[in-house]
Amino acid sequence: MNRILLLLEHHENRRLLAEWLSTRYQVLLPPEGRAREDSSFLDEPFDLGILDGPALDRSWEAVQAKKEAAEPVFLPLILITPRQDVGLVTRHLWRTVDELIISPIEKVELQARVEICLRARQLSLTLKQQNEDLEAFVQGMTHDLRALQRAVAGFARALQEDYGTQLEEQGQLYLSRIQRAADQMEELIEALLRFSRLGREGIRVQTVILPFLVQRCLRSLEGEIAASNA
């Protein structure tokens, strides 16, 4: 069952909302009479937070820290405010608040917006799990590929050291292609690992020298090019 934290300073609104939401969700309420600086209630896990303006002012830093700590999982926060206070919602609040509800509001609309936020959170949880599964799979696969790559590179190096002088020109060409392919395979394995971590580490933009890449591609395909007379 989804857990919803109600952080409302308006006692009657909190009571009514808690009664209504408790029929569908597990409702969490901060302890009565807590000290202003006490934010320990936020240590409890929850899937959605519903706040009003005074409560957000009182616990803004703790709420913001909770939201940042949950990343990359989406932790939705809904701010409920009366129409006359909409103008007081400052731009910086949108770094914390994901949805603004102007009271009074019909129950059916509130239910729909709560469900949208909860579904978005569930999707982010699913995506996080899928990314972790993918990264674990890539880690295992690249471990096996790296063992094969090292074997190919090692035997090619041993062949070069022990029998390199005995190889004819064509044999030397084949050996150099094997060594180059082993090096490229190592680069591909590293690139695959970096790609699997993109969601966690972010994307780094860098300048690419296209003629250099073209030449590398041509060298890697020179066998196929020669065979097809391209």
Rank of each mutant, 00 (worst) to 15 (best):
L7N: 13
L8C: 03
E9A: 11
N13R: 14
R15N: 02
A18V: 07
E19C: 11
T23R: 13
R36E: 15
S40I: 02
F41T: 06
L42R: 01
I50V: 15
I50R: 00
I50H: 01
L56F: 03
Q64A: 15
Q64E: 07
E71I: 04
I80E: 08
D85P: 00
R95D: 11
T96R: 07
E99P: 09
S103V: 11
E109G: 02
Q111F: 04
Q111T: 10
Q111A: 14
A112T: 10
R113M: 12
R113E: 11
V114F: 06
E115T: 14
L125S: 11
Q130V: 12
L134F: 13
F137S: 15
Q139D: 15
G140C: 07
G140R: 15
G140M: 10
M141E: 14
T142F: 03
D144P: 06
R146N: 15
L148F: 09
L148Q: 12
G154H: 12
E169H: 11
L173E: 13
L175V: 02
Q179V: 05
Q179K: 13
Q184L: 15
R194I: 01
S196C: 03
R197I: 01
R197S: 10
L198S: 12
E201L: 04
G202T: 07
I203Y: 10
T207R: 11
I209T: 10
V214S: 09
C217D: 02
S220L: 12
E222T: 11
